[in-house]
Design a binder for these strands. Structure first.
Lengths: 192, 192
DNA sequence: ATAGTGAAACTAATGGTATTAGTTTTCTGA
DNA sequence: TCAGAAAACTAATACCATTAGTTTCACTAT
């Protein structure tokens, strides 16, 4: 009756990530998860602490994925150092489109308690963007770099978030809009 | 036993908006709403069709509020016409900070069905931003205007969304970052 | 004034959710 | 081999939204 399904924290989170990306973050419940894994909901508590913990782990997975995607984009174009930022931006957006559920988990941190681990990973991401953006700025004043990074993140997140929410449906190419706004923003921060 | 509380669609939505702004959109439930209004949950169905409808109405309220706030910002500075956009941006952000719940309702349209009314109001908002942005653009090509509007909305939504999610906590003034990014973006779209 | 009607409240019940407690089964290592 | 820990289970509790069916109130027309 309990033939020891090979359940495991990693297996559970993999299933949760798949559900999140395929049918939306809000449909990651203990019920759907248990059904997917051929197990009764309470059994999941042997491996995981409850739904909030699962959500936190999804957030961490999303941040890690985003970080890896951008890191990879950076290393692939090390030659043309000053042109790294559009690559970063595209990597960010592509990851979000490929993993909408994990990306969504990355953002809605407001209501939840966030782990130390999550804080850490988020800071790494800021650091990465920061380094990518620095060559574009004439001033090396730390405050200006922070303003520039915040703006860049706002642009990236706003675009992806609006797309994932069903926005930008007019018959104009979204990718082109994305390239346009990145180009404009970069030009803008260089000017001042 | 049923002393005819003066319940009403408007009263219900007012309570829902308050709950949304004060304790988060996710805590707008029929249970909290009924408790707030001193009524049992099923009674609400005499006035409202269910939770999805309440959410849609909150979305509409948010869009209307946003539209009014930006419209007002426009009319208050009609003199310096070419400098309207920073005012629009500030009005947008201020409304979102003042009404975080309604603002959130404005965005998470993805999972829900949206009414014709909502589509309409959203289009009006785009139109308003579009008109505000037009004087800044050298080219009057419609596609470029759309790109510019999308970028502007992305920047606005990204900034407010990240703030509301608890981001941008470093000891650097957020308002200044906001002014920086708006200034940079405007400079960027003028350049090309 | 009062009877009747429709609206607005109610109670009760259903089915979904997370979570806890307590129990059984299975695997493993001594 | 067997004893204990780990991993599944069932049962129960406490929420939630929603529907059905019932009662009560307020108004309107006689």
């Amino acid at each position: 009756m309990s033939p020891r399904v090979g359940l495991d924290d990693a297996v559970i989170m993999q299933a949760a990530a798949t559900i999140a990306d395929e049918t939306g973050l809000q449909s990651v419940t203990l019920a759907t998860l248990a059904k997917q894994l051929n197990v009764r909901p309470p059994s999941l508590y042997n491996h995981v602490n409850g739904l909030p913990e699962i959500r936190n782990k999804l957030t961490l997975l999303g941040l890690q994925g985003l970080h890896e995607a951008m890191q990879e984009a950076l290393s692939k174009q090390k030659q043309s150092d000053s042109d790294a930022v559009p690559g970063l931006a595209i990597a960010y957006a592509q990851y979000a489109m490929k993993h909408p559920g994990l990306y969504e988990a990355t953002i809605n941190i407001n209501t939840r308690e966030h782990t130390e681990e999550i804080q850490q990973k988020a800071a790494e991401l800021v650091e990465l963007v920061s380094n990518g953006l620095r060559p574009y700025l004439s001033s090396a004043v730390e405050a200006e770099i922070i303003h520039a990074v915040r703006g860049f993140r706002s642009l990236l997140h706003g675009y992806t978030s609006l797309i994932l929410s069903g926005g930008f449906n007019m018959a104009i190419d979204r990718d082109e809009s994305f390239r346009y706004m990145i180009r404009a923003y970069i030009a803008g921060i260089q000017k001042s």
